[in-house]
Design a binder for these strands. Structure first.
Lengths: 338, 338
DNA sequence: TCGCGCTTTGGCAGCGCTGCCAAGAATTTC
DNA sequence: GAAATTCTTGGCAGCGCTGCCAAAGCGCGA
């Protein structure tokens, strides 16, 4: 092994062409396996490229390529959070499938802030991505304008309760909330409370609650109580919120949580206080996180197809699906807590 | 609002120059706030850019810019997993700080596979990133060769047990394992078992175990038993593995888990079986995930500075820190399970 | 009014790559 | 054997931007 000096200039296609004794275009064709070239040329180029340690410069490639529209093979992704495991799951499905199709993901985290999303979208667009994948259907006016002007494919993940900009992949959060309430009502619970995190920011959770309350109303019921924590969704918040709720409204017989991690915290509160679940208090979550399946009593929750959403988003993009909504549904995970 | 046709050609700097009645260079200077230009020119350019909805093309910018080395403002990131919350945490710290410094992250997930990492690194390098951020110190030979040849800054996160390529930010996994064992020994446990996931892939977990066993050996002890699941780390795996272990070696008095989520699964197993924690069985985890702090008995574990590692990585890059290792340490989270 | 030094400005050559085109080589057809 | 067809190939323009340079504009003292 030789001492390696940082080369003053990286190897370019011209270097490879010289080394292989062919023209630049030939190198380009061989390296992309496109167009026609002789076997001999192919071998020489590949050999030369290896010998020089050539790494193509996609920046240049994308710039030169089809300059009209989607130049690059980058896909911009904006998710609201990495804390809530829901979004890493989405990301996993997305990047997994995107990788397979030869795309790279540029990721931004908006922290549930529309203005932050706006800034991220602007930044991402400057890389001339082939497409942009966002979370949710709500965006600032400027964001929408920019997205329209960019003339690229847009995917909005996780929410199908409303018109999308281009392709929407997800499920109806309203329907999830509605079905959750139906389940609790069916089980005979009547004094049902809600425990959630900041609704102003997490609009999907707000939609679930709206669907939930609608179902209650259909049965002549109303939310027995609600306890909101300003914080982001977490087990600790769920635990604290449930304890606060029960101190305030002790005759509550079931609780609907904004999220499984909140519900897990609630379960911990019950364990700590010795409240029998579901006899004393029933718990119902959302999303069916892996963790809640390992609980002594598996959590009653709604399984949402997070991985599949990410994958479907990627597939819709690489397949060039027409605009529209792809509803992947959800499924009751019966569990043993409600 | 007018009907918006996808423009056949996106607005370029030349369009802005024409609209503003100035030269291209002036537009470039104004837009980047670099070099000198008159107030008047500045205003006209900004106005024109807004009017046309100009979005700079960073592809072109990076290509033209300082072509010698770190052209772009992209930073490549490779993490092994998004399932294990440890990595989203790293990513969060990283992207947060990187955003602040004007970088965008291109993310790849290697799934703990060195060959996959190799492919991802090759792919990321083709975007001529300003730097690359990897996880762990172990890479294929070809990966190392390519990284060296790229002549860019490299950060390796989370592991400081060995020589890094450039900048390493993290903590000593060996030391974590060692300290965990010291704690258990100090508490009087002697029949200590290990429950973990696939060690061949998660090399950091393997290093922790090595440190753990070394500490045991220093006290004249050895691992009482070990139970490995081929699966990835999860609460369900932890639960199943602990039950299998206890069926096999029932006199175990403490268990060291590869990870907090495995430990949480173990805790659930204890709850289900009615094993008193820590009297019948002590549990010790790793990483101090948020969730485990909300448990009725907080998990005894090691708090690792995941967010800080991501942040420190970003800062080392933007500050142009010299090569070397940044050890952020770790901290015992005493909890109540061991 | 002129000349000097400073600020401001526009033109132009690339950055590395791909698409297009036309020329040359190889192959086939009659 | 000549013409027609196909396959290979290299040259060159240009993607949108920035850096460099020289020219133009400006302020001010002599």
């Amino acid at each position: 092994m030789t001492i390696h000096q940082t080369p003053s200039r990286l190897v370019t296609i011209a270097d490879v062409a010289r080394e292989a004794g062919v023209g630049e275009s030939t190198v380009s064709r061989v390296l992309r396996g496109q167009g026609s070239f002789s076997k001999r040329a192919g071998e020489r180029v590949l050999e030369a490229a290896d010998r020089l340690g050539y790494v193509p410069n996609r920046l240049a490639g994308s710039l030169a390529g089809n300059a009209d529209s989607a130049g690059s093979q980058l896909v911009g992704v904006v998710i609201p959070s990495l804390t809530n495991i829901v979004f890493p799951d989405l990301l996993r499905g997305l990047t997994g499938a995107l990788d397979g199709a030869g795309f790279q993901s540029v990721v931004g985290v908006s922290d549930y802030d529309p203005d932050r999303e706006e800034a991220l979208v602007a930044g991402l667009l400057s890389w001339r991505p082939a497409a942009l994948v966002l979370t949710g259907l709500e965006h600032t006016e400027l964001t929408v304008t920019r997205l329209r002007a960019a003339g690229i494919r847009i995917v909005e993940m996780i929410d199908t309760d409303g018109p999308g900009l281009d392709i929407a992949v997800g499920f109806s959060n309203r329907a999830v909330g509605h079905a959750s309430a139906r389940h609790l009502i069916g089980r005979g619970y009547r004094r049902i409370a809600y425990v959630g995190h900041d609704l102003g920011r997490d609009l999907r959770a707000a939609k679930r609650l709206a669907g939930f309350e609608a179902a209650l109303a259909e049965s002549g019921l109303a939310l027995h109580a609600r306890e909101l924590v300003g914080d982001r969704s977490s087990a600790a918040s769920g635990r604290a919120a449930l304890e606060a709720l029960m101190a305030r409204v002790p005759d509550t017989d079931a609780v609907y949580f904004s999220n499984d991690d909140m519900a897990l915290g609630g379960y911990f509160a019950c364990l700590g206080r010795g409240w029998a679940v579901p006899e004393r208090l029933a718990l119902f979550g959302c999303h069916a996180l892996d963790i809640t399946e390992a609980m002594p009593q598996p959590l009653s929750t709604m399984r949402t197809p997070r991985l599949a959403i990410g994958r479907a988003a990627a597939e819709a993009l690489s397949a060039g699906s027409p605009p529209g909504t792809i509803d992947l549904g959800f499924e009751l995970s019966e569990g043993a807590t409600a």
